[in-house]
Write a protein that binds this DNA or RNA. Structure first.
Lengths: 199, 199
DNA sequence: TAGATGATTAACAAAATTGTCAAACAAAAA
DNA sequence: TTTTTGTTTGACAATTTTGTTAATCATCTA
C-alpha cells in the first residue's frame, strides 16, 4: 500500500494518546503501544523516530484539543455566570477524555519549567489565567460572587471542577459506582458549584 | 561499625520517601536514590533486597503516617464543624509533606484493585469513608450543612482541600508565588471553605 | 592481638528497552 | 511485466537498570 494511504500512523498515535492520557500509562513502552495498536513494534520508530518524539507529539495534540475548546469559551461574550456554567459543562464532557493530562503536568512540572518550547507553553498559560483573573475581578467588584479575591474564586472553581475528575478512579472505587453513575453524580454538581460560587 | 548502629538504612528510607512522595519521582532508580542519599548503590539492595521492596515499604510508611493523624481526628468527639476545621488544618500542615502520595494512588489505581494486601487497604479505606458519610448524613438531617447529600458534601470538602495541594506546583507557577506566599494563600482558604460547606 | 560480625565496595550477569538496518512485501506507475 | 515507492518485519547492537557475589574494611569482643 504505497502513496500514504496507510492508517497505521494515525492508529499508533491514537493508541498512544489513549494509553498515555486516558489510562495514565505514561511509561508505556514501544512494545506495549504496538501491542495495543496491534502492529509491529518497529513501526513506532518508523513513523515517529523515537518514543520520546511520539510522546511529545501526542502531548501537544491532546493539549491543543482541550485548549481549543476552552479557548473558544473564554472568548465568548456572555454573562459571567453563564460562562462559568459552560466551562463546567465543557470539563464534564470533554476533559473527561484525558483525565491524566493534568496529572502528567504535575509530575513533570520541574521539566516543564526548563526547555524553550515548554517555557513558551508556560507563558501562554500564565497569560490566559491572568486575563481570566481580570475578568473575575471586575465581576467581584460588582458584588455578584462570594469569593474574597479573584485567585480564591479561581482556586475554588478549578478545585470543584477538577478534583472529582482527577480522582475519578479512586472515588468510583470508594463509592462503588460505575461510569454511568459517577457521571450522573458529576452532572448533579453543576448547579451545586454555581450556587457555591455566586451569591 | 558493626552491631546495627548504622544510620544508613534509615537514611536510604528517608531519602527514597522524599524522592518518591515529596518530589514525585516515582521512577527514581536505585542509583538516583543512592546518589541522593550519598551512599553506594549496592546498599539499597543490601538493606532492602530490591527496589520494589523498598518502594512498598516506604509507601506503607508514608500512608500510615498520614492515616494515623487523620484517624485520630476521626475518632474525636467534637462538634462536627470543628472537626472539619481540624481536618482542613491537618491537611494544610501534614499532608503537605507528601503531595505526591495521592497522585501515585491514582496512577496505580488499577494495580491497587488487584493484590490481596492492596485489597485489604482498599477495604479499610472504604469502611472509613462509609463511616464518615454516615456522620455527615446525621449532620445533614440537622440542617446545618449546605450539600444535598453526604457524598456531595464529601466531594466538595475533599475537592476544596485537596486540589490546591495536588496542583500546588502548577498554581505556584501560574500565580508566580513562592512557598511561603502559597501556604499563606491556602491558610486564607480555611474559613472560606467552612463558609461554603455550612449554613 | 585475633577472630567475628556487620557495613561497604567493585565487578559481574541478567533482563528490559530502545533504535537501526537490511531484507521482504504489496501495490501503483512505467 | 518490470520498476518504483512506501510499508512491514526480524535480527542485531547499544544502553539502562537491576540484583548477586566475593572481596575488603572497620569495629567490637573474647
Amino acid at each position: 500500500m504505497p502513496i500514504r494511504d496507510s492508517q497505521t500512523e494515525e492508529l499508533i498515535k491514537a493508541t498512544a494518546k489513549r494509553l498515555f492520557f486516558s489510562e495514565g500509562k505514561f511509561r508505556a513502552t514501544t512494545q506495549e503501544i504496538a501491542d495495543a495498536a496491534g502492529v509491529n513494534r518497529t513501526l513506532v520508530n518508523y513513523y515517529f523516530r523515537s518514543r520520546d518524539h511520539l510522546f511529545e507529539l501526542v502531548l501537544k495534540d491532546a493539549r491543543q484539543q482541550i485548549e481549543e475548546r476552552m479557548g473558544r469559551l473564554f472568548e465568548m461574550d456572555l454573562p459571567f455566570r453563564e460562562k462559568i456554567g459552560l466551562m463546567i459543562d465543557e470539563l464534564l464532557e470533554s476533559v473527561f477524555d484525558y483525565p491524566f493530562m493534568d496529572i502528567y503536568t504535575i509530575t513533570s512540572i520541574k521539566d516543564v519549567s526548563e526547555g524553550s518550547e515548554k517555557q513558551a507553553h508556560n507563558k501562554e498559560m500564565r497569560e490566559k489565567i491572568s486575563h481570566f483573573l481580570k475578568e473575575v475581578e471586575k465581576e467581584r467588584k460588582k458584588g455578584t460572587i462570594r469569593a474574597s479575591s479573584a485567585i480564591h474564586f479561581f482556586l475554588t472553581l478549578t478545585s470543584l471542577m477538577g478534583h472529582p475528575i482527577t480522582f475519578r478512579g479512586m472515588y468510583q472505587l470508594a463509592f462503588d459506582q460505575n461510569d454511568k453513575q459517577y457521571k450522573k453524580l458529576l452532572k448533579e454538581r453543576r448547579e451545586l458549584i454555581l450556587e457555591m460560587l455566586f451569591k
